[in-house]
Simulated assay, not measured.
Amino acid sequence: MSEKLQKVLARLGLGSRRGLEELIASGRVSVNGVKASLGDRIEDDVTVTLDGKVVMRPGQAKIACRVLMYHKPEGELTTLKDPEDRPTVFDHLPKAENGRWIYIGRLDINTSGLLLFTTDGELANALMHPRHGIERIYAARVYGDVTEEAVEKLQHEVKLEDGPAHFDKVKYVGGDGRNLWFHCTLKEGRKREVRRLWEAVGCKVSRLIRISYGGIALDPRLKTGEFRDLSVKEINRLRLLAGADELAESEIEKTEDNNAKVQSVADPRQHKRESLKGKVPNKGNGYQNANSFSKRRHAKERQFDEDVFVKDQRFGRGGMKNTATFKSAHKSGSKKRPSFFKKGNTNR
């Protein structure tokens, strides 16, 4: 069965349909050596090139859909390769048997939490496009004097350098003193948007964890650096939100891990790090000096802190109050919380 050329290329993760239509119209796409035209349909037995580079070979038009949930730790880049050889989110992913992994909504290096990956480029583009209004929920630890007026402003309109923005919902979920946890809901994904919104009202986000994307919540069983496959039901929930048709079980890539098994892949840099220990000078080497030891210890504490946080189903209540993160929340001279945050007023 033939399909439109731009639809097939979008599914391969080469761009959005509209963007690919522009590439086809400009004569940059060829099918079996012949320049393609808008409206062309292709079968599964052709070779497609973009700017002279092969982007599809026979048998690649039909890629079974697979979606992963990954618990990203802080310190990893959402990119395939880094020129400085820093850790990336792809270091802990399994090999995609068909196609390649495409992330859905990047997270910056200092943000942790839920990151979805798929082999279906068209699905990835749809889930990231603002027109679908896909909800992203973040747990943010906010430092500063948070007032009722500030929360109201954040839910209406805040002027940022790239245009007005707002949270669809802000909900207080825990914390005391000047370190408070909030759930912040957005329906778009601009760069550092959560942090910039809070900064616009005089506060600072000291921790940021994405806990939900498109109604798919971060699995509390996943520790940082671990992943699992989404079930057929979860994948179809995302497809419906993106305006795509549901898939039958036979159209979703079969793996032994489709039973929501939690997994992890060894960090390929770990052997290199271990081999360097004791073989370099202490000063400025990034491995053995006191500052480096302190940073590694701090990283372990933050990971423990986040693991406890994620396992608490309410993300911010109860379980977090006994961790090191909240021990410093009660400071002498801290201002009393406004009535907005008192018990019974947390469903804002």
Rank of each mutant, 00 (worst) to 15 (best):
L197A: 13
W198K: 10
E199M: 03
V201Y: 09
G202T: 05
G202V: 04
C203N: 10
C203D: 00
V205Y: 14
S206C: 10
R207Q: 10
R207A: 14
R207E: 03
R210W: 07
S212H: 02
S212N: 12
Y213L: 08
Y213Q: 11
G214P: 02
G214F: 06
I216N: 08
I216L: 13
I216W: 10
L218A: 11
P220K: 06
P220T: 12
P220Q: 04
L222S: 14
G225M: 06
G225Q: 08
G225I: 00
E226Q: 15
R228D: 03
R228E: 12
R228V: 01
D229F: 08
L230P: 09
S231Y: 05
S231P: 08
K233E: 15
K233W: 05
I235Q: 11
N236S: 05
L240G: 12
L240Q: 15
L240H: 14
A242K: 04
G243D: 07
G243E: 02
A244D: 07
D245N: 12
L247Y: 12
A248L: 13
S250V: 06
S250L: 04
E251A: 12
E251F: 04
E251K: 05
I252E: 11
I252S: 13
E253K: 09
T255Y: 06
D257H: 11
N259H: 07
N259Q: 06
N259R: 07
A260N: 09
V262Q: 06
Q263A: 06
Q263F: 01
S264T: 06
V265S: 07
V265C: 09
A266V: 01
D267A: 05
P268K: 03
Q270K: 11
H271C: 00
K272L: 03
K272C: 00
S275Q: 13
S275A: 15
V280Y: 13
P281H: 02
N282M: 03
N282W: 03
K283D: 05
G284I: 00
G284S: 05
N285V: 00
Y287N: 00
A290C: 01
A290M: 03
N291M: 07
N291Q: 11
S292H: 02
S292N: 02
S294E: 11
K295R: 14
K295Q: 14
K295M: 08
H298Y: 14
K300N: 12
K300R: 12
E301L: 11
E301W: 02
Q303M: 10
F304R: 12
E306P: 00
E306M: 15
F309G: 09
K311T: 05
D312Y: 07
Q313M: 05
F315E: 03
F315N: 06
M320K: 08
K321Y: 15
K321T: 14
K321G: 12
A324Y: 14
T325H: 14
K327C: 02
K327D: 07
K327W: 11
A329L: 00
K331V: 03
K331T: 06
S332F: 14
S334A: 13
S334H: 13
K335R: 08
K336H: 06
R337L: 15
